[in-house]
Amino acid sequence: MNVEIFNYFSKFIEKELGIVYSDFNQFQLQARLEEVAKSLSLPSIEAVYEEVRRGMLESRKQVLLDIATNNETSFFRDKSVFDAIQAILLSDLGKNHKVKIWSAASSYGQEAYSVSMILSELTAQGHAVNGQILATDIAERVLARAKTGRFTQLEVQRGLSAPFMLKYFSTDGEGWWKINATEKQRVSFAKQNLRQSFVSLGTFDIILCRNVLIYQSVEGKKDVVDRMAQILNPGGYLILGSGESLLGLSQNFESKKVNNVIVYQKAALASKLVA
């Protein structure tokens, strides 16, 4: 892929999604564009570029945006974070109240379904905790898969112990592992571009936005975090990826350590923010 093509697609993706591809992850973009070419039955990245240059960008836009996003994830990715989520669910936040959780950039739903499994575990242990999870992603093909609650053998093995696979999944005879109805019913899915308004999503007690902001520019990060603060209930939590921080990005949160995981709690005084 030559510089002209790389620059064209990286600028397009940054403009649409805020995801920054630069020299260090050029190979990642190249791999994704090769996937775009394959899915459009075109022989090469150059052929995709030619089509787009001929004015076919709009018709190819969704495929490009779907594939440009990163769908690599697993169940209970970074187990310590889920221990922290469990502790938060058992705190005052979860008392006499249906906890509303948003899994932003949810990919195939592993994060959302993991939280749902935690809720089931807590319920089985006798805790009166209830929750509802919204999982969003920009990519339509990813959401379509996520809604089915079906996972491949490789996906289901990533992050799930055998007893959990047994407890929360069944097989359908075609090689798919399907999450059980109780855990599926707690999760709903919607298309959401993180660059666009969150107001229609409602308000939340916990927002999971892990390993998403790393692809955004600093200004993009600030914008997303500010708008997340606006739809987070007072005392609610924003949880980022283990390598991410709000340092220098927002004044709306207080960092706290829960089970050795840094989480960001929205100050109660910040509740007057207008969504």
Partner: peptide
């Protein structure tokens, strides 16, 4: 790799 195989072994 079936659910039944898994269940039997666990």
């Amino acid at each position: 790799n079936s659910f039944e195989n898994l269940k039997e072994m666990i």
